[in-house]
Design a protein around this nucleic acid. Sequence first.
DNA 1: TAGACTATATGTGCAATGCATATAGTGATG
DNA 2: CATCACTATATGCATTGCACATATAGTCTA
Lengths: 137, 137
Amino acid sequence: MKLEPTVFCSNKPHHMERFLEVCLLLLLYDEIGYGYGLIEQLSYFGFAVEDLNVSTLYRTLRKMETEGLVTSQWAEGGQGPKRRVYEITVKGQSELDHWIRILKVRRARIESLISAYDHKLQPGGPDVKGENTDGDF
Amino acid sequence: MKLEPTVFCSNKPHHMERFLEVCLLLLLYDEIGYGYGLIEQLSYFGFAVEDLNVSTLYRTLRKMETEGLVTSQWAEGGQGPKRRVYEITVKGQSELDHWIRILKVRRARIESLISAYDHKLQPGGPDVKGENTDGDF
DNA sequence: TAGACTATATGTGCAATGCATATAGTGATG
DNA sequence: CATCACTATATGCATTGCACATATAGTCTA
């Protein structure tokens, strides 16, 4: 029942260290929220709902609380089970700022890579050979 | 002799799943190379030399070989110890193409996030609060 | 002969994540 | 009431990508 290991990058993991965490911080920066409800909002960042792993979401939120980035309390009222509602802290806001800077570096690196790929290592790269001008893609 | 490394991020891990691997595939797509020499070339993608972890590099290359993405052989001649020279395979090229596609999705997500941060959740997002218009950076 | 340098390799451990599963309250329906 | 579907939160297990530390060894120079 396993996927063929030759199927590189089937569809699943593709981690991106703490990216989910940063998304959550940003959402909570705007307004308080609870786990299940945040899932929908994550689509703003290009997440398909089926991409998201509920376990990871909750575990991430709990971890963020232990780190002091958010606080939580049980919300009464409404229908359905009680919700644990999260609120960002000052420390969480700093962390958000910090990670945005990191993500900008990350973006630059990805840009460099994609650019190099699309030009097959042309500008500023090592001695350009002119070979490999075949353009797949 | 290298391009200016644009890196200013703090110091630590900040993984990016398999990003190094994709960089290596792209470098080897251009021309064959060996471990130690690839380190310098990685600065083209925004890696500072001191960012790079030599262990990770070699382990990654070996892993890529067991996966059939590259082949290697010992190169004689020249001075210094022998070098294990790597060459990309057809499978490696497919893998590269595939990961580029993933990185483009990744780029889009990072763009969404940074954009939302800079605008504090304005376009298409939930109710905009208008607060926090301070622009660090 | 002794470093300094180049080059490759591995043991250990951690953190981020996916997958599977558990627990439990609410509302609707028969 | 009993049952079921749905919402909501939580946790055990395994995988994996990476860092850190360390090991091995050839070459060159003093």
